[in-house]
Design a protein around this nucleic acid. Structure first.
Length: 759
DNA sequence: GACCTGCTGATTTTT
DNA sequence: TCAGCAGGTC
């Protein structure tokens, strides 16, 4: 169907403005709006710009924003794309576009039609931890011990199968090893359990989308008409189920545009199939192909290094990435004695750059494994280098946050057994393992959710009266508030509910730093919920919980501030920085040792190195250490074989001489265990960036403007109104004792507690 | 049922 | 190195 001109946006000058500044290939990609289009976009070739402009152009040409489906790799990328479209076209248009990750968009669509596939719209989304603990309980029910198979092994096999659209029946029929046979058995139970719990894991969001499309002709018809234009970013990293769902969506109109680069495929281990991009032209025989090969990001030197590396891979499509940029600085290769020296070296270079007028935010430090971040953190903190870590333990994976979210989930989806278990004994209610086992048995016998079994505790003969009492207290609390929320959907009641769970009070009363931090985190989550209710049309708790279930590490970080970014090479995909350090280039670490025996895995590692190199705009530093502490032991190692792929002419003269491996100097410290500074989070600017949307952590504003004094009336987000009893501590670390109405006295750190002074 | 202690395995990468 | 867990004790 050709595009019709939109009457009010067909302004000629706007249109030409939009296309101005694009090179001929980019222009071709932007304006080829009809039919299947494959864009092979080399690193730094302006891919994001092309996608954004293409959408804006389509809208200008008459496409309805609500008919556009744009799938990106992170929610952040989608958000940025929408922001740019808001400027290029209009905020209304941007808001109407369906843009997000596969998982978040599909979750949204599934919510609207959950009943068609046997769920309710309030289904829970299980993250990896939830799934694993479900698997553990299944293993227990099946009397399978850890000696036979680990829950992790089972989980990864199930996920592997799901990613490739292999159901349990097929998996069972092909299972040849004992572990596979167990996994097949668990897989079957797991599927059943998830449906019972009204829950989906990450893989199910994709699979169920396909099930939904297959569920009826009308459904398929509806969505094929609904999404007239489909755009997919990072197509090389899509898996089988993503691929199939796209085929369903686009089968009629075939207006599908995929963008990718086979050289940057780094998620094979997660089920991504490069063949999706390689076979696109087979799938759509009349597909138009555009190659974006001009790089606007990096210097010639960096590009040469990247090219030299990727050329070592056999299974790559030949590409000629080129740039008009300068030759630029040589690459620095540095050998250090050990991992601590490596961190010191990186800090030193960063400090030098800062003194020459660079910004911290122009620097990224990339590594293979999250565990490597610790030494950089220590060193940066000692040198007052502000930094942000992406990845590692996410805010939403913290115990107290998961517990709080479990209470929310349970309120909207009482079938959710995982949340029930989590919430049940946090804070401790005196219901122990034996009791839970008895209730679980009862639930299994009657095929009812765990929560329902707790509500019927009276009927369970073997339970002692005191357990029956605490069980009914627990279920009454949930039932009471789920009714209240149904009657009046307001965040006020959710806050009240969370307070009544006693979770915050439990931590508040524990006088440890750790507990105080947990209180702060919970209160931050609650502020976020409040903000969500204030800023969203038709907010619901269910929607909020689903949103935060799908937040990715990179989404939740505010990278706009002036600080160094620390992250894994995987997380760096799609980003760019003037200065990039790639650290830990050692045999066994990068490439990881387990990949060395498998050519395909090693090629994937090499692509990962390629991705890392091509993040750099101007200066690239490659470092490796002769010895490194791993698993609490000091290991000596050789430099990475990947370094041999880069011609030595590209390295600066100040680079370390590339020593033959045998000549490595021995590590200076034979044992550094005690010398590594303890992790100390006290002065890192971290609380403001662990967040959905805009964090706005408004701490310490009050005491800066007007000092609190005993007798003042204050309001706390969670505890409500109260009166300041006393203040103690140093200026930067004031502790207040506040008497809250109905709650009694609480000790609060002013620096973190959000106290609002009221008249 | 709560708490303590000593053992074990984890470090790939993430929606 | 250290978090998480099983197993023992009160």
């Amino acid at each position: 169907m050709p595009l019709k001109l939109h009457p009010d946006t067909s302004n000629k000058s706007e249109k030409s403005d939009l296309l101005k500044g694009l090179n001929s290939k980019q222009l071709e990609a932007v304006t080829s709006t009809e039919g299947p289009l494959l864009i092979i976009a080399g690193a730094g070739s302006g891919k994001t710009r092309v996608l954004t402009y293409r959408i804006a152009y389509m809208i200008q040409q008459g496409a309805l924003p609500g008919q556009i489906l744009a799938l990106t790799f992170t929610n952040k990328a989608a958000k940025e794309m929408k922001q740019r479209i808001a400027k290029l076209v209009s905020p209304e248009a941007a808001a109407a576009i369906y843009a997000g990750t596969f998982h978040s968009i599909y979750a949204r669509l599934l919510r609207q039609n959950a009943d068609k596939i046997g769920y309710t719209s309030d289904f829970s989304i299980y993250d990896t931890d939830d799934s694993q603990s479900t698997i553990k309980s299944i293993l227990k029910d099946l009397n399978i011990t850890k000696d036979q198979v680990t829950p992790q092994a089972v989980q990864s096999r199930i996920s592997y199968a799901k990613n490739r659209m292999i159901g349990w029946q097929e998996f069972a029929s092909k299972a040849s090893s004992p572990v596979d046979r167990i996994a097949a058995r668990v897989y079957q139970e797991f599927d059943k359990k998830l449906v019972q719990c009204n829950a989906m894991d990450f893989d199910d969001l994709l699979l169920n989308m396909i099930n939904l499309l297959k569920s009826s002709g009308e459904m398929l018809d509806y969505y094929q008409n609904r999404f007239q234009y489909i755009l997919v970013d990072e197509y090389q990293d899509t898996n089988r189920s993503q691929y199939l769902s796209l085929n369903y969506f686009s089968a009629q109109h075939k207006n599908i545009c995929v963008v990718g680069d086979d050289a940057q495929s780094i998620y094979r281990w997660r089920g991504a199939e490069i063949r999706n991009i390689l076979d696109f032209q087979k799938d759509y025989p009349n597909a138009h192909l555009v190659r974006l090969e001009q790089n606007y990001r990096s210097t010639k030197t960096i590009l040469s290094a990247a090219d030299a590396v990727i050329r070592m891979n056999k299974g790559q499509i030949p590409k000629k990435l080129w740039t008009e940029n300068d030759e630029g600085n040589k690459i620095t290769l540095k050998q250090l004695n050990d991992d601590r020296d490596e961190a010191e070296y990186v800090s030193k270079i960063i400090s030098q750059k800062i003194s020459l007028g660079q910004n911290y935010s122009n620097v990224a430090v990339l590594y293979r494994t999250n565990a490597q971040s610790l030494l950089f953190e220590n060193s940066f903190r000692a040198k007052n280098i502000p930094y942000i870590i992406i990845g590692g333990i996410s805010f939403y994976k913290r115990k107290e946050i998961k517990d709080t979210v479990s209470y929310m989930k349970l309120l909207i989806n009482p079938n959710d057994d995982e949340s029930c278990i989590r919430a049940l004994n946090e804070p401790p209610r005196g219901i122990g393992k034996t009791t839970i086992e008895k209730v679980r048995e009862f639930a299994n016998q009657h095929s009812i959710p765990l929560f329902q079994a707790f509500s019927r505790a009276d009927e369970i003969q073997e339970l002692q009266p005191r357990f029956k009492l605490s069980a009914s207290k627990f279920s009454n609390l949930i039932l009471k508030y789920s009714q209240i929320i149904k009657d009046e959907n307001s965040d006020i009641f959710i806050r009240q509910y969370l307070e009544e769970t006693g979770l915050v009070q439990f931590y508040s009363e524990m006088d440890t730093d750790d507990a105080q931090e947990r209180v702060r985190n919970i209160s931050q989550l609650i502020s976020d919920l409040t903000r969500y209710y204030a800023n969203t049309d038709n907010p619901t708790l269910s929607d909020y919980v689903q949103q935060i279930s799908l937040i990715t590490d990179i989404d939740e970080k505010d990278t706009s501030q002036n600080r160094v970014t620390l992250m894994t090479l995987h997380s760096a995909k799609g980003l760019e920085f003037p200065n990039v350090f790639i650290c830990g280039l050692e045999a066994g670490l990068f490439p990881l040792s387990r990949t060395e025996t498998n050519i395909e895995e090693e090629e994937e590692e090499r692509r990962l190195f390629y991705v890392g190199i091509t993040r750099a705009e101007k200066d690239l530093y490659l470092t490796y250490a002769a010895s490194r502490m791993r698993f609490g032991e000091i290991n000596r190692q050789m430099k990475s074989k990947f370094l041999n792929n880069i011609p030595s002419t590209l390295f600066s003269s100040s680079s370390s001489t590339i020593l033959p491996q045998q000549q490595f100097s021995p590590p200076i410290n034979s044992f550094t265990g005690n010398m590594v500074p303890k992790r100390d989070n006290s002065n890192i600017p971290q609380f403001d960036d662990l967040h959905v949307g805009k964090p706005n952590f408004e701490y310490s504003q009050i005491q800066d403007e007007e000092e609190l004094k005993p007798g003042d009336k204050v309001r706390h987000n969670l505890f409500g109104e109260g009166k300041v009893i006393s203040l103690a501590g140093s200026r930067t670390n004031i502790q207040a004792i506040v008497n809250f109405q109905g709650l009694g006295k609480k000790k609060l750190m002013l620096q973190y507690a959000k106290l609002e002074k009221i008249k």
